[in-house]
Design a protein around this nucleic acid. Structure first.
Lengths: 342, 342
DNA sequence: TTTAGCACTCTCTATCGGTGAGTGCTATTA
DNA sequence: TAATAGCACTCACCGATAGAGAGTGCTAAA
């Protein structure tokens, strides 16, 4: 366990490292923070902190740099102590930028990612709500070919997803309408996961209760909403240009490659699932190998009523958490507000 | 005008520079190409080529590097002489990768960009057909709110575009259906630009000929298809990770920033418009300042019947044109084939 | 007209010492 | 006894310097 002095020094070292991005020595530290301690005392404390794994030396005769453990301690103390407030001008700029001409939810979410990257000067990510959690508003099937229909799903949040589905035989538009109507009148207002459950249950139980056509289309619909991972293609990144600042060129390449990969998104999602509000992940290399020395600050958006997505930033571990955590927090809240207004 | 020897030397210098990516001196050149000339003769020829602006020296006592003009000469001679053939294995890999599970055209186009970036190891871009040139297949309006409808447009190529439109008053779904039906029965099979023209003409001329509701919705539809630039959001990039190889980190940042900007796409589109088949643009800094020392190899896809988009790669000016031009060419052809099969 | 020879140029790389910020250890102090 | 001043030591960083190597233009000979 850390004593009061060690805590103070650890926080001071971390803050200095964030501000200056260089290893912090004992002399430099007392110059920046009037701790009323001599450099020798600081050095003793630093030696203990190093032994406990909170800080480390890049080489002998260099200052200390916080480790992942050190950063985690710093971030936790930040989240406990500070109210997540941002300046009025920032708040104003945020709502101004988000209140754009975009009128569909996908657009708003993308716009939020773009705004976040501009305000934070970091890579921003926006993850749409899981399709499972979305509330079905409307379904439509449109005949396209002899054996193909365009299936369209609108959620309560105003998110639209369309996919072409292969049909087992040729249906008329009227038949498709009938099936869609059945789905709409029975499932509108329900979460997709509930729709799934009820559908598969009913399809097994009372197959004979419905029209032959409705049954077939329901089967198709069932298949279609099961394969939901392509909703991930809706995710958006913005601000890749902010990446190359602090890391070497090979790592930038690796990160860019990772970002284009869907697996990456799934892993991030996984990391965020279940959490509410702001979440800081210090050190992403355990999730994505390319992202060593990088951290994520993310927050879920949408309230309890609606299915939540996540929005956040990815940047160097030595990012300015004090400034960025509130920005992410407020962006997520602003996004929630705008989506609920729609 | 260049004489035979100068041409030979220019092409050899350019090819060597592409292969080695270093300035090419007279001694190195005769080592690689048995031109049966002494280094002194080569030097004389190089001096003339430099005076004519085809090659340049990074500094005194360095070899020569082709200028943009030199590269243009090289690419032109390549396009004239060589048939654009690729190896069978490459051709096989290409069709294998493209023949994916994607069933909508947007997906296929995106997949093509991804494939192209993987095969070429360069940044790949895919630009969808201009909405103006697309052939209207089906329109649908779906009531969403009191004052909002989801408008949906399916083109002949299977490209779907949906937008929320604000309505001037509350319509019933039936009224919306009626308007959609009118549009479908009158305009399906026509290019959007023709639809636009006819619509605006008719709206002015015989306003009274239609139902009140149809007229209103037609007005809305007219407004909606006029603002077509957001189709650009369909564009896709792939392979940003291939960028950082040959250029400095600031340029990479600038390029990444440019890519996220819509203006960039418009400028590229402009550059490609009107061309058929393969097109090589050597030196992109006149179009996008950040892209100095970069070139584009692009080809239009879709045949004369359908509206064409473009697909291509962006890479360093010293890229391997001999290998990459055929790859782009074949990818565009394969894409055309797959889209026409749908 | 082409080529061999030559003096010269300039980048690139490795080496080397000085500088400075930092450390741990030890003896001293409050 | 815990905190501090003093001190010898370490090591990255920076600038200067020198040699190697690749290339050039010019001139005179083939």
């Amino acid at each position: 366990m850390l004593n009061e002095r060690q805590k103070k020094i650890l926080l001071a070292v971390t803050q200095s490292h964030i501000d200056l991005n260089i290893p912090i020595g004992s002399l430099l530290l007392i110059k920046r923070y009037p701790l009323n301690l001599s450099s020798a005392t600081i050095r003793n404390a630093m030696a203990s902190l190093e032994q406990m794994g909170y800080i480390t030396q890049p080489h002998t005769s260099a200052g200390r740099v916080p480790t992942e453990k050190g950063y985690k301690f710093y971030v936790n103390s930040l989240l406990e102590d500070h109210p997540l407030s941002i300046s009025d001008s920032m708040s104003y700029e945020l709502s101004l930028r988000l209140k754009s001409t975009e009128n569909d939810s996908n657009g708003v979410i993308k716009k939020a990612a773009k705004t976040l990257s501009l305000l934070s000067h970091n890579l921003a990510i926006a993850i749409p709500p899981k399709i499972e959690d979305m509330v079905l508003k409307h379904v439509k099937f449109i005949k396209y070919d002899k054996r193909k229909a365009l299936s369209m799903l609108i959620s309560d949040e105003g998110i639209v997803k369309n996919t072409f589905v292969e049909l087992d035989k040729s249906y008329t538009q009227q038949e498709l309408d009938k099936a869609a109507h059945y789905i709409n009148s029975n499932f509108a207002g329900k979460q997709i996961k509930d729709v799934k459950e009820i559908l598969s249950y009913q399809l097994i139980k009372d197959q004979e209760a419905y029209d032959r056509i409705v049954t077939s289309v329901l089967y198709l619909f069932n298949d279609y909403i099961i394969m939901d991972d392509d909703i991930l293609s809706l995710n958006s990144f913005s601000g890749t240009s902010y990446l190359p600042d602090l890391v070497d060129s090979q790592q930038v390449k690796d990160i860019l490659r990772a970002i284009e990969d869907k697996q990456f998104m799934l892993k991030l999602l996984n990391q965020l699932s279940g959490s509410k509000g702001i979440k800081v992940v210090v050190g992403l290399e355990s999730i994505i190998p390319a992202m060593s020395k990088m951290s994520m600050v993310a927050a879920t958006y949408n309230d309890d009523k609606r299915s939540g997505g996540a929005i956040g930033i990815i940047g160097p571990t030595c990012m300015n958490y004090k400034k960025l955590i509130p920005i992410v927090d407020h962006t997520a809240k602003a996004l929630t507000r705008i989506l609920s207004e729609n």
